[in-house]
Design a protein around this nucleic acid. Structure first.
Length: 568
RNA sequence: GGAUCUGUGGCUUAGCCAGGAUAGAGCGUCGGGCUUCUAACCCGAAUGUCGGGGGUUCGAAUCCCUCCAGGUCCGCCA
């Protein structure tokens, strides 16, 4: 509703003025939409902007009002558009449809298939609160793409042949660690081994030669070394999967780095790269990317002939580019340089580079996190703490419910609190982990939005018990007059355009902000206007509005990966 | 040193890419509101040199330059 109205006004203004930008902005308290186009025209023609605005309004008023329900006025140089009552009624009708906000992108899904890679943490320890910023951004983005109608395959790239895994493998032998019978969760056990192995290496640097041997063995495809690497990698990965499942995150496929060595893709790609004019053949094979703005050489093959991580990553991305129409990676800020080098190299090769969503780091109050030094708060620990807090909250609020009902609510609330807390902040902002905020279930939190949804559900339930049919509401009979009603309706109408914006700009936080604002507006409406106790057309209209709010909140929450609880 | 991101009331933060009308929230503080549709809520008040300086513009939190502060990166690691 909002998008079509926006587009109509935009193209009408462009048509009449002969410009390609209608300079539309949010009208704030003045209007639903405002154009500042009169400023631009007045400047060029050296005229009074208010005059230009008045003249423009006269030119388009007739056509505008014939097509859409919208009042057009000027306030000085501003051209203001206010949507009318039938816009509101229609918006509420549309928003009650199951799956509201879903888009249809293409008749042929193969043309727009998306490969989205996220999390891809090194299997040398559990996911920590930094990793899950990647996870939650990626999963929310994937949900937004799916909501918008795109087929998405979500991948986890497993770095199973790195130095870190060599260190773990060495540590298992050196520490005589029994990986198969350990009762501890695999990823945490691997971290224990990794941290201790690093200490041992520091104490006795001579062991480094054993690590080098393992590295060469894995690259050469030595089955014994591969087997040794595989044990901790799989134990760690299974731990990841458990943690991800607790956050309601699922990957469609786990892709192993070593496969791109085994299947020859890396060698074939290196051969192609070697023929590039910007290739430098010294002891190593490297690329001179200076004309793309990179000072340092991009080394892809070591002097001993083995490939480096970047080479395998290029092979992986070439493969993705050939199998999907769009490739998106979610990567931490520490990958900015290598991510851009990878993009530039694929460009040079004539391959489709990935779009990369970078996010800045999460640190602890005492400094940055480090798996190697054991300085991190694991996602499991966070989930446990928040769940405990949620259980206490639910126990205090809902003594009437059974244990299993309370546990289910607490579980959903804890995931909601964590996911929302992370997704609400723009990715470019580095954050410091804060227990107080992570455990907060009040305003600007996931549970706050869930609560608004549950409240709407409860009202609708009571209305049905009193004989309300629900589906009887057709747009022609809906009337919205109070400021609370109108503000809520107009926000609901924007939901589909928010989803579109998230996928076009890769900014999932917009959906988080939107959902919170929707809950705010609903809460204000709830306190200001009686619904069940109102009568006649007002009651019908308000019930329809509550139903539209409930449905929109439900869709928004699902897209954020948060359970839309009907009671809490 | 170079690259890059960030800097908005005491704290956290949206707005910045696509410049416009009194900079929008939350926490905290102060004052109100539950025998009334779920108070994980609502209403009101106080709190702002939008890091500093310069520039562009009729108009700058937003664009450009510069300085300051913090994060991240700059390896034949991944």
């Amino acid at each position: 509703m909002y998008s079509t109205t926006y587009n109509f006004i935009s193209s009408l203004l462009c048509k009449v003025t002969g410009r390609d930008n209608a300079l539309l902005t949010d009208g704030g308290e003045h209007a639903d939409l405002a154009s500042t186009i009169a400023f631009a025209i007045a400047k060029e023609e050296k005229r009074n902007p208010a005059e230009v605005a008045t003249e423009l309004v006269e030119k388009i008023r007739e056509e505008l009002e014939a097509e859409i329900d919208c009042t057009i006025t000027t306030l000085g140089p501003y051209i203001n558009f206010v949507f009318g009552s039938s816009y509101c009624a229609r918006a509420v009708e549309l928003a009650q449809v199951l799956g509201y906000g879903t888009g249809v992108v293409s008749k042929d899904p193969q043309q727009v298939s998306i490969c989205l890679e996220h999390t891809s943490a090194n299997p040398n320890g559990p996911l920590h609160v930094g990793h899950i910023r990647n996870t939650i951004l990626g999963d929310t983005l994937a949900r937004c793409f799916r909501k918008a109608g795109y087929p998405v395959e979500v991948q986890f790239y497993v770095n199973d042949m790195g130095r870190q895994i060599a260190i773990v493998s060495w540590g298992i032998e050196w520490q005589k660690q029994d990986m198969s019978h350990a009762s501890k969760k695999g990823d945490h056990l691997v971290a224990d081994v990794y941290i201790q192995a690093n200490r041992d290496l520091e104490a006795e640097p001579a062991h480094a030669t054993e690590i080098e041997k393992l590295m060469q063995g894995v690259e050469a495809g030595d089955p014994e070394v591969l087997r040794r690497f595989r044990v901790p990698v799989m134990r760690c990965l299974n731990g990841f999967k458990e943690t991800l499942a607790r956050l309601d995150v699922q990957h469609d496929r786990f892709i192993f780095e070593s496969d791109f060595v085994k299947n020859g893709d890396t060698e074939r790609l290196l051969a192609r790269i070697a023929r590039l004019p910007i290739a430098k053949h010294e002891e190593t094979l490297s690329l001179d990317l200076s004309e793309y703005g990179f000072e340092k050489e991009y080394v892809l093959r070591r002097s001993d002939g083995t490939s480096v991580y970047a080479a395998r990553d290029l092979a992986y991305h070439r493969w993705k580019a050939h199998n999907f129409s769009r490739v998106i990676d979610v990567l931490g800020a520490d990958h900015k340089l290598i991510g851009k080098q990878l993009q530039a190299t694929l460009e040079v090769l004539g391959e489709k580079p990935p779009a990369i969503l970078f996010f800045e780091f999460v640190s602890l109050p005492e400094g940055s996190m480090s798996t190697r030094r054991g300085k991190f708060i694991s996602a499991d620990e966070l989930l446990d703490e928040v769940l405990e807090r949620a259980k206490a909250e639910v126990a205090a609020r809902r003594p009437d419910l059974s244990d299993s009902e309370r546990d289910a609510i607490a579980r959903s609330v804890s995931v909601s609190a964590i996911r929302y807390d992370i997704v609400k902040t723009i990715p470019e902002k580095s954050t410091v982990f804060n227990w107080k905020e992570a455990l907060d279930f009040e305003k600007q939190s996931g549970p706050y939005i869930q609560y608004a949804h549950a409240r709407a559900c409860s009202m609708l339930q009571k209305a049905r018990e009193a004989g309300w049919a629900g589906e009887s509401a057709v747009s022609s009979s809906l009337v919205y007059e109070t400021p609370y009603e109108i503000a809520l309706v107009k926000h609901i109408a924007k939901f589909p355009s928010i989803i579109q914006q998230v996928v076009s700009d890769s900014r999932p936080h917009l959906l988080a902000i939107y959902a919170r604002e929707l809950a705010d507006l609903f809460n204000s409406f709830y306190h200001a206007e009686p619904v069940l106790k109102s009568e006649g057309i007002t009651r019908e209209s308000r019930l329809a509005l509550v139903a539209a709010t409930q449905n929109t909140l439900q869709e928004a929450l699902l897209t954020l990966g948060i359970d839309p609880l009907s009671a809490m």
